[in-house]
Simulated assay, not measured.
Amino acid sequence: MAHWPGPWRREEMGWIFPRRATGALIGVLTVASLLTSACANNAADNDGDLGKLSQMTMATGSTGGTYFPLGGGIAQLWSNEIKGLRVTTQATGASVENLRLLKSGEVELVMSTNGVGTMALAGDGEFKGEKHDFVALGNIYPEVLQIVATEKSGIKTVEDMKGKRVALGPPGSGTEVTAKQVLGHYGLDPENDVKPFSDTFADAATKLQDGAIDAAFTVLSLPAAAILDVATSSKIRIVEITGPNLDKLLKEDPSFSTLEIPANTYPGQAKAAQTVTNWATLYGLPGLDEEQVYQLVKVLYEKGSGIEHSVAEQITLDTALEGLGETKLHPGAERYFKEKGALD
């Protein structure tokens, strides 16, 4: 019997390892096995049946936004209410990054605006050349287009913005995309017919107060704290989205829905204002277990309004399916909505 150098030796057709070496090798092999399995799962077809899971991860947004704290509250609610399931959250750059994480199989659930979801499924815009396959579980809350103009600017309609100084949102943002869509549908070239500013709303709010700009496009939940701050110190007007141009916008982009901003949402806003909204929507992998998704959706719409967050009361069955367009529902979500009469 030959002896091999080092702590290992081969005996006939097998290997004999000292105890410490055995433990170390088993650890290495276990890690390698887990990594191989994880890679295989991520590379697998997300349409495959994932079976009943004991843990899910939901991608949310940045720690300073709405998605992260609200998503944390939703995840905690699910973990408390659904037996055998623990849901955790992951901070991200929000919608675009989230859908790419879902595509890779790194997470099971994501929060995203429905407009970005529609774009991803179509392989347009930020997702040009990419192929995405995911399903909707329902809307969470409205992300409302709120066009704020100073009263002294004289802006009462979108058309009145011609020649005015207008903040369109940060470059590449959903706000900028929406602003350009709306201006275009009202016959205004966003580069030539207005004086465009590429500001975050925090910066735009300061400029509105200082009189450095005349109006700003924002996509925010209701009520928006930043707009409240501006309205407290300055006289503002919420510019409405109405008329035939609105009808054309809704027809061309089904991710939009109409929404009325109630009177007195902001100081000095005596009348309700009509606008459009995208939705913060919950998406998931197609292969998630039907019964688990049914429970996720049931808990979200029956108990979600009790989450301690300012927009939680806007989680409602009445608007759960608005603006989803051609996006497929997960069978578990579809079953719940049919039971509740929200879907034929």
Rank of each mutant, 00 (worst) to 15 (best):
L34M: 12
T57R: 11
S62Q: 12
G48L: 14
K52P: 06
G61N: 07
F68M: 03
A40W: 14
D47G: 14
A44N: 12
A24S: 11
L34I: 14
V28T: 08
G64R: 02
G27Q: 00
G71R: 00
T36E: 04
L25M: 13
T63W: 04
V31D: 01
A21V: 14
D47C: 11
T57N: 10
Y67T: 06
S33E: 05
G48W: 08
L34C: 07
L34V: 14
P18C: 11
A59Q: 04
A24D: 02
M58D: 05
K52D: 10
F17A: 12
D49W: 03
I16E: 14
T63Y: 03
T22N: 02
A21I: 12
D47K: 14
T30G: 00
A40L: 13
G14E: 12
T63I: 12
T66M: 11
F68Q: 00
T57D: 09
P69Q: 04
G61I: 03
V31C: 02
G27W: 02
N46Q: 15
T63D: 05
S54Q: 14
G48D: 13
S37I: 06
M58W: 09
P18K: 09
T60K: 03
A21R: 08
R20D: 13
A38E: 06
G64N: 06
G65F: 07
G61M: 03
G64S: 09
R20H: 11
D49V: 01
A43W: 12
F17Q: 07
D47S: 15
T22Y: 06
S37W: 12
S62E: 09
D49R: 10
A38H: 06
G65I: 01
T22L: 11
A24I: 13
S54G: 15
G51C: 07
Y67L: 12
L70T: 04
S54T: 15
G72M: 02
A59W: 04
L70I: 03
A44I: 09
L29E: 00
L50E: 12
G23D: 03
L53H: 11
P18I: 07
